[in-house]
Simulated assay, not measured.
Amino acid sequence: MDDALWAFGRVSGFVSMVLLTVALILGILTRSGRPLPALPGCRSPCFTATSPSWR
């Protein structure tokens, strides 16, 4: 049982690290302004930063 829990913790940590890395890379790529081939409906930046109206 201890070996199974250790293996589960090890694998879940590895999966979390991979998912975080993928999310980070996708965030950098989408923020760079280049369209991603995997997102055909997002030709221009979907989330554009606008300045607040109170400025």
Rank of each mutant, 00 (worst) to 15 (best):
V22M: 13
A49F: 14
A38Y: 02
S12W: 02
I25E: 07
C46K: 02
T48N: 11
V15D: 05
D3N: 09
R10W: 10
S51E: 08
S53L: 15
L24A: 14
D2M: 08
M1G: 04
P37W: 10
S32K: 12
S53F: 05
S16H: 05
R10M: 12
A4I: 08
L5Q: 09
W54F: 14
L20Y: 08
L39H: 01
G27S: 05
M17W: 13
F8E: 07
P45W: 03
G33H: 06
T48M: 15
R31C: 04
D3H: 09
S44C: 02
S51R: 12
L26W: 06
L20Q: 07
R31A: 11
D2K: 12
S32I: 11
S44W: 07
M1T: 01
G13W: 07
R34P: 03
G13N: 13
T48K: 15
V15H: 03
L19S: 15
M1V: 00
A7R: 13
L20N: 12
S16V: 10
W6G: 02
T50H: 10
F14I: 13
V15F: 05
V18D: 04
P45N: 08
P45M: 11
A49G: 07
R31D: 03
G41D: 01
A23T: 14
A49V: 09
P37K: 11
S53G: 13
T48R: 15
C42Q: 00
L26M: 11
D2F: 11
G41Q: 01
V22C: 14
V15E: 03
R34N: 09
V22L: 15
C42S: 01
W54Q: 14
V11D: 08
S44M: 04
T50W: 06
W6H: 03
T50N: 09
G27M: 05
S32C: 13
T48W: 11
G9I: 05
F8M: 10
I25V: 14
T30A: 03
R31S: 13
R55I: 02
P40I: 01
R10N: 07
W6S: 02
T30L: 04
T21Q: 15
S12Y: 03
C42W: 04
C42V: 02
F47H: 12
G9S: 09
F14M: 11
R31I: 04
M1D: 01
I28G: 01
V15C: 12
W54S: 13
D2L: 09
T50C: 08
A49S: 08
I28C: 00
S32A: 12
L36E: 06
P37N: 05
S53D: 11
V18I: 15
L29Y: 03
R34F: 09
T30W: 01
L29K: 02
L29T: 02
A38Q: 02
I25R: 04
S12R: 12
I28T: 00
T21E: 14
G27A: 03
F14S: 09
L5N: 03
A4C: 06
V15M: 04
L26T: 04
A4Q: 13
G33T: 06
M17H: 15
R55F: 05
G9Q: 07
G33L: 09
G13K: 08
G9P: 05
P35R: 11
T48V: 15
S16W: 10
M1Y: 00
A38V: 09
L5D: 08
G41Y: 00
P52Q: 10
A23G: 15
S44H: 04
I28M: 00
